[in-house]
Write a protein that binds this DNA or RNA. Structure first.
Lengths: 338, 338
DNA sequence: CTGTTAGCGCTTTCAT
DNA sequence: ATGAAAGCGCTAACAG
């Protein structure tokens, strides 16, 4: 018996059960899988022995021999703290199951995106998700397993993507806001990158804003932590730096909700004094007062496009092929805050 | 060639690559797995051939031979629309990964809880999650795989649980509310069961309320859909039926947030006219005005208790053992709504 | 450096 | 109704 607390018994195999029950391994298989062609008494005896030994068939051995019926999809969820991502995960789970896929979910939230990918890379047939890594590095890590990126561009073979044309959406949003009287527009960006290193990497959304907003952008962009509270703090900061701003575009809905909350504290009337617009289209936007106007991303379309690509790859046995690209368009969801 | 659209090629195996590259299978393994002891030129040739053939090592065969290093946990998530459950999923993913578990997530949301369990039952070593099925039926379905129930009692061998003593929490809540002046308390229950059948099954929380609340309960309990909007409608209904109520206990935070929203529309001052109290302790409760007072459940404790049980089961090779039970206590989180 | 020999634990033939 | 043989596709251990 080992000195430490590890169990003394090894996991029972089908052979152990067969021996203990005095039958062949096939008989054990028959009993375990309700297969018929087996005497009821024998079956019961086998079942008893198997229970006594705590026998559980190895899922690996079974999968190996039962012709690749289970196709597995590795879903990388950016965050479990933002409903936007969990709703996508939920939709993906439902839709993937309907198409006969088993989904293994991993989160890149802990920061160990690489570890998660590497771990799963010999457990799944394909990856799907919001992955921040550069394509080349990604390919390296997953070791040739195809990847379908969500909301990210793709160029290299083996990496495919469903893009969302946020730039077009923001252009549309800004135009409509101007038509409604917006004069000076500011932005709150996510300081997501700051969680993993000390250098802030401006988001593409900020890039589009700088390109499209026009006007004096000095001090009009503030970076905040990607949370409700972070959005609130950023809004406060922005209003102090640029009291002349009458419209604020926020990186995402969660942060925008925080901004709306902060507006109460600051005594700023929304949308009369300042308009607030989020990005994502969360149902949660209905929870705040006033309800949140937002540039809504169609999650269902995102998911079904991604799974279309996955099925296409599956048909090709996941051989490495040139990038498959799909693009979807966000659209404004006007509620009360703008 | 087959008449339908199925691919004509079968998935390439290591032997195909070996033959095409003119080497042994072992050399292919070495190339694919970066193992050293291989000529750089040979390696490159193998890699090229493998890419050309679209070869992907079978994860089943590999797992079979690489000694059961991966232990898999099947997490059943009740809903991806309620942050309470997704936060637990996130915590579980992080904590399980830290303990060397791989997590496969399935949702019981679609209503096909049974299908999900059955599908995963030969893919995982243990189940954890919010599962509504009766224990006996559950055991039947999972075919002997141990289960750790979250927030549910357990009695049968093979089924274990981490309970949350909601009754004690509600008792405490009601006492404190009375001390703060609550006279007439009403409740909003979840009509969750209505989604799957036409019969409403009162939740245990309702049972505790009826037992503990006291006073005239006629019309003081309303059933609503388990969503923000549902909570809002239920609150409206409750206020119409029983305008004398000064305190409302809500089934969960999501519904309670809806109730707070509805109070604005109804012109009811919270907490001055009516106090609103949720259950769960979501960060989201900070998003509404006034912020939501709630009976908070410690998710971290729930998760770590569950994983303790899982590790214990693992040490016993998942043999069927008597129920292991843990109990945690919720506690009041006083914010502004009560 | 490369190839050969053994399995991993299970389910499928196919006999008996 | 049961058992014997034959792999599934891969990697570990040992040869050469």
């Amino acid at each position: 018996m080992p000195p430490d607390g590890t169990p003394t018994t090894k996991r029972a195999t089908i052979l152990d059960v067969a021996a203990a029950a005095g039958v062949s391994r096939q008989t054990v298989t028959r009993a375990m899988n309700d297969m018929g062609d087996i005497n009821a008494v024998t079956k019961q005896r086998v079942l008893d022995v198997s229970a006594r030994l705590g026998y559980r068939p190895s899922r690996f051995a079974r999968s190996l021999v039962v012709r690749h019926k289970t196709r597995a999809l590795g879903l990388i969820v950016a965050s479990f703290r933002n409903p936007y991502f969990t709703e996508i995960a939920g939709d993906m789970l439902t839709a993937a199951a309907a198409r006969g896929w088993q989904v293994v979910i991993a989160s890149s939230e802990s920061g160990d995106e690489i570890g998660a990918l590497r771990l799963l890379s010999n457990q799944v047939d394909v990856f799907v998700g919001h992955i921040a890594l550069p394509e080349a590095e990604l390919i390296e890590i997953v070791g040739g397993i195809p990847v379908v990126l969500l909301e990210s561009p793709c160029t290299l073979p083996g990496v495919h993507c469903v893009e969302v044309d946020i730039r077009a959406g923001m252009q549309d949003a800004i135009e409509q806001l101007r038509r409604k009287g917006a004069r000076t527009i500011g932005m709150i960006d996510s300081g997501y990158s700051l969680r993993f290193s000390s250098t802030y990497v401006p988001s593409p959304r900020r890039g589009y804003f700088e390109e499209l907003a026009g006007g004096d952008l000095d001090g009009a962009i503030v970076v905040g932590e990607e949370s409700m509270a972070g959005g609130g703090r950023a809004f406060t900061e922005l209003m102090q730096a640029r009291p002349d701003i009458d419209t604020v575009l926020v990186f995402n809905d969660v942060m925008a909700i925080g901004a709306v909350q902060a507006s109460h504290v600051l005594g700023i009337a929304v949308p009369q004094q300042v308009r607030i617009v989020g990005i994502d289209g969360l149902a949660l936007g209905e929870a705040v007062t006033p309800t949140l106007t937002t540039l809504s991303i169609d999650r269902q379309a995102l998911v079904s496009n991604a799974l279309d690509i996955v099925d296409e790859l599956d048909a090709a046995h996941f051989a490495k092929t040139a990038s498959i690209r799909r693009v979807t368009l966000p659209r404004m969801l006007w509620r009360e805050s703008a």
